[in-house]
Design a protein around this nucleic acid. Structure first.
Lengths: 225, 225
DNA sequence: CGCGTCTTTGAGAAACATCAACAGCGGTGG
DNA sequence: CCACCGCTGTTGATGTTTCTCAAAGACGCG
């Protein structure tokens, strides 16, 4: 049985496990980002990665003619900013006030960089690959309702606040961001939310606050495969 | 300007660059796979990765209720089989007779594994992340014709054989595989091929052999973003 | 309180999936 | 060597989902 991925596109707790085994160096500084500020842009040179410790980041790519794809959201515990060929491959900006740790990510050409560094980078990158493959399944094979449900399910498990009769999730991103992440239009996302609300699976006190009333049925809708 | 990803979902040549800088060890054996044979299955334990040297592999995931998603195709030069939490996260079988090199991919916990190994793994994983992000753009934001054109464009650049008035590409995978990779149905893929043929952008001597007659227009259709 | 932005809702159009039938091709056995 | 069979791919007709276009409602901010 294959259960390693059931938290979906967000990094799993194993990432933290890998991390705690490495020693902190003086290079690991912390940065604070106000909402809307960019951590890096697509094409930037970079030899670091970032661990989100507070807040929520948005990672997106914009194609030449303006189509935006939100590649991921960065929640506390996630590692973002993997440089490919020394360059950032996405934009990254803060949806809320956020804090990140800056971690070195130099590849030790000819023994220059540290081994622990490369091992940590490799472990984090492998987790990211798993997350992205899960997201590929969502984009390739799921309906709009399944996509939105999967999205909510992941957030619920990751950052849900339990309560007597619901699990509460804040959505710092706009409907447009969710749509861009799930490969849909904002109207379609909105309709999916409405459907879930009318089915009494969720409640929407405000557009940015979801209360999951029936996690089991949410899962049924999301994993309808 | 951001140009690092224009080869799409297949690994870029930089991967080979990284590779040549590491020394070959006795652990690097070569395996030969007949068509249809599996290199590994989803859920297998594994501490290795594979470099394809000949042939074409298919990497796919099957969800519990049978929906298949082809995550990638492995062409010579590609690294496949990244273990996540020590497990394979896809099935991998050979579409043609194929050869792979077996490379170690242990994460050096407490200094056990080699540094060069971790660095190579990290470099390969980062390239894979870039490829997957490109594929995410395709699945999230492109029409069926754009998807099929993008697919052909990548193959053309990667394995196209030039000729006086066309670039020839073999398609060892079925229409169903292409559909599963692009998030479409086989009929839709077939119609996209027909459209491209009727537009004189490609020719289809057989279903498994594409001759790209007009690469520029193919690119226009693919990058219609 | 008014204004702009984000979200929701509705109606209609377009894209893709689905269902069904046929064609092409390769392999097999007579 | 040819006829048959099965599989893959193509084409057509129809159905469903999602997108697009439009407008109204909700929310936050000055």
């Amino acid at each position: 049985m294959y259960v390693a991925f059931d938290t979906g596109f967000l990094s799993r707790e194993q990432a933290i496990h890998v991390d705690t085994s490495r020693k902190r160096s003086a290079l690991e500084t912390t940065m604070k980002l106000p909402p809307g500020h960019f951590l890096f842009h697509q094409g930037d040179e970079g030899q670091t990665i970032y661990r989100v410790t507070e807040g929520v980041l948005r990672l997106s790519r914009v194609s030449e003619k303006g189509r935006q794809q939100v590649v991921a959201f960065g929640y506390p515990g996630d590692i973002v900013g993997f440089p490919v060929a020394g360059q950032r491959n996405t934009d990254c900006d803060a949806l809320t006030t956020a804090k990140v740790q800056v971690l070195p990510a130099r590849l030790p050409r000819d023994g220059s960089g540290g081994m622990a560094e490369a091992a940590f980078l490799a472990a984090a990158a492998l987790l990211e690959i798993g997350n992205m493959q899960e997201h590929l399944m969502t984009l390739g094979r799921k309906s709009s309702r399944e996509r939105v449900s999967s999205f909510l399910l992941v957030l619920m498990r990751r950052v849900g606040r339990h309560d007597r009769d619901a699990i509460h999730v804040d959505l710092p991103m706009s409907r447009a961001d969710i749509a861009d992440f799930l490969g849909l239009r904002t109207e379609t996302v909105s309709r999916a939310f409405t459907d879930l609300r009318e089915a009494r699976i969720i409640d929407l006190p405000t557009a940015q606050h979801v209360a999951v009333l029936d996690p089991d049925r949410l899962e049924e809708v999301a994993e309808a495969d």
